[in-house]
Amino acid sequence: MNTIAPSKNSPMIELTGVRKNYGNYEVLKGIDAEVARGEVVVICGPSGSGKSTLIRTVNRLEEIGSGSISCDGNNIHRPMPAKELNRLRSRIGFVFQSFNLFPHLSAIDNIAMSPIRVKGVARDVAYAKATQLLERVGLTDKANAYPGQLSGGQQQRVAIARALAMEPPVMLFDEPTSALDPEMVGEVLSVMKGLAADGMTMMCVTHEMGFARDVADRVWFIDQGQIVECAPPEEFFSRPQTARAQRFLSELRH
């Protein structure tokens, strides 16, 4: 896991010259980067720097102005029929800061519904898989609980299981723990660590520096819409190259 060398030759995610504007305001100012297969990338940076925007462009929850993004060999932002985009999206897992579980469905229904409706998986197969995933995130006993009856940490673990149910080769996380009470952060991070250990390709916006240190292969530091630094965690944390990264890290430690 600690090598950057991809298992296959092509990178899993490839961003080339990605730019995006909100009106006159340029949020992403030309992003060039790659995520190798099996690599875990942690993205950090000050608030408003464009981290969410960047990660959301990868499964096209946001459109981009120019440049291109490919994932597993597919150009995500090319013009394509809606059907094709839905198929591609189902192969990119996304975990939201605010969970966004479907409150009208129980935990296990949350996990099984999309494989059935989107991929046409048979019910019993989907539910068997969902049961397995619940076990993996440690929530076997909560299968029939509704989101409203779960703690934040439990909800987020269900959300991760829900994304995994589509069997995506890539998982994207946008601050998955920052809406959680401190005592629940650990349980979510340990699920994510498990995923990384299993070889999942991950892109993760987070300020959990402990997680970055332990799990990440590389850290991207973003500021004002640009990747300012890109280095293995030990290097980034001990020898940040730019003044901006130094200031960010020192503020984070306080």
Binding site: I92, F94, F102, M113, S114
Partner: peptide, 25 residues
């Protein structure tokens, strides 16, 4: 937006998201 976004991120079509996620709620 969150519900629609989550459904789309899972690969549901717009109408599929409406049918299975948004309208029931």
């Amino acid at each position: 937006h969150g519900q629609m976004e989550a459904a789309r991120a899972l690969g549901h079509s717009y109408l599929g998201a409406m049918r299975y996620v948004i309208l029931p709620q």
